[in-house]
Computed example of a mutant assay.
Amino acid sequence: MKVTMVGISGSGKTAYMSALYETLGDAGQNEAGFYIAPRSVQQFDKAILSVGDFSRFSLADKLKWPDGTQQTTVWPFTVYHNSRPVTYFDWIDYRGGILTEITDTTDTQEAPDMVRSEITDLASHIELSNAVILVADAFVLTYYPNIKEARHRSGARRIHEIFTTYSRIYPNRNLIFVIMLTKADTVDDKWKTDNYAPLIERGLEVFNQMVSLQKQNPSWEGCIVPVSAVGEGNVHRSVTPTEDIKHPFRSEDKIVGFPQPVNAEHVLFYCLGQTLKQMREEAGKSIRQREKELSEILKQAGLVNKIWSLIMRKPDAESIARAILEEKNKDYEILSQFETHIEPLLGKALERVRQIK
């Protein structure tokens, strides 16, 4: 299972990893009984990929922000529920600058080797991902009154370009996506009323193309959720307007209270729960297909079939049926491994996320 996180530089991807560590990592405590831990695997053979040290993201230990993602990193995790392993997944965190380069580079052959390699890897990982997390800074979404400027400044426009192409190339492929509005604690109070309802509506307006793409693709499942790495009142933000059209404001965030992340775990719960749900549906289809094949083959079974098969040196209907039954049992076995975890994951996620219909 693969989950890929994509957002421009400064959108809060690395801070979200901190929130994930505090809520679901070694230090995390949550009522649902789920937690994640890195699993030991060999590194990818490409220089731009590395397996990081999850614990270095702890905000509670240092009370300062971690360094931003300078190098695309793959985090191999195991999900546990009440200390029992549920599933494995790879969490892929792309450096923010790649979003700019992938859309600004008109000819990838002219790009530097490292950039070209990252663009290729990003496309491959999105193609192979079960779920993608689209990261946008909630403060940026609300700072600019012009919706087109908000799309541009937040990276939504570039994300739209990528997934419009994805939809065109893979029209029938399943895709789970989460629009994650980071730094939700820094927006003006008017955006926070009714559990951030105005902020969510603004996010849907900014990401309107993703909403449209989901309506065009019945196999897509999407949601939107505001997230804070530290929680309300635990950061002091100072904003200074500038006269630079490229960077209209400068902001500085200082942690002033003990971090208490908001909604961080629900993003991952949605990704994993929906993916397991899709796997269950695929396994169910496979089982039903094998049952149909089994029924047809057993109709052909009998003494004449056995004799004819012996003469032709081909498997008889009963042998084929036994083989199909073995495959069916394997499907049941796979299904039973995660069946009981789907509803707890999705149920917890849906407490906070808003599904996109």
Rank of each mutant, 00 (worst) to 15 (best):
D137H: 07
S219N: 14
F34P: 00
L49M: 06
L346M: 15
I162Y: 03
K215L: 15
L181A: 05
R250T: 12
S309L: 02
Q43F: 13
I147L: 15
S219F: 11
I200V: 15
E252G: 10
Y88Q: 15
Q355K: 13
V140M: 07
I133K: 03
E296G: 07
V41N: 07
I48F: 15
I119V: 10
V267K: 12
F249D: 04
H152A: 09
R151P: 06
V239N: 06
G231F: 06
L204D: 01
K2W: 02
Y144G: 00
Y80G: 03
L99G: 03
G28R: 06
Y88I: 05
N329P: 01
A131H: 01
Y88E: 15
R354E: 14
S58N: 05
I342A: 01
A317Y: 06
T186D: 11
A317D: 07
T193G: 08
R313F: 09
P344S: 01
V51G: 07
F249G: 01
T242I: 01
A184Q: 05
T87G: 02
T164K: 14
P344R: 04
P171L: 05
G28Q: 02
Y21T: 00
L345E: 08
S40W: 03
K46S: 13
H81W: 13
S124A: 15
W65I: 07
P145A: 09
G7K: 00
S40G: 00
T186V: 11
A47P: 10
K2D: 07
L204H: 02
H341I: 04
P85R: 09
K62Y: 15
R157P: 00
M279G: 10
S238T: 15
K2G: 00
S124H: 12
I8K: 10
R202H: 03
V230H: 09
V304F: 13
M1K: 09
L335W: 12
T120Y: 11
A138E: 01
T108H: 14
E327C: 05
G68V: 09
Q42S: 13
V225T: 14
F269C: 11
G155Q: 02
R173L: 02
G203R: 01
A317R: 10
M210H: 09
H236V: 06
M210L: 15
E343P: 02
Q278E: 03
D61M: 10
Y143S: 05
V256L: 04
Y21P: 00
F249K: 04
L276R: 02
T275E: 08
A32G: 10
R313S: 12
L199G: 05
I162D: 05
L213R: 04
E339A: 14
A123K: 14
Q274I: 08
M1A: 13
R95C: 05
S11H: 01
D188R: 14
S309D: 03
L310G: 12
V227E: 00
G12P: 00
G97C: 02
S295E: 14
G257F: 10
V267T: 12
I334Q: 13
P241K: 04
E326P: 05
S117H: 12
T242A: 04
L310E: 11
A131G: 08
G257V: 04
A184D: 04
E22D: 05
L99A: 06
F89W: 05
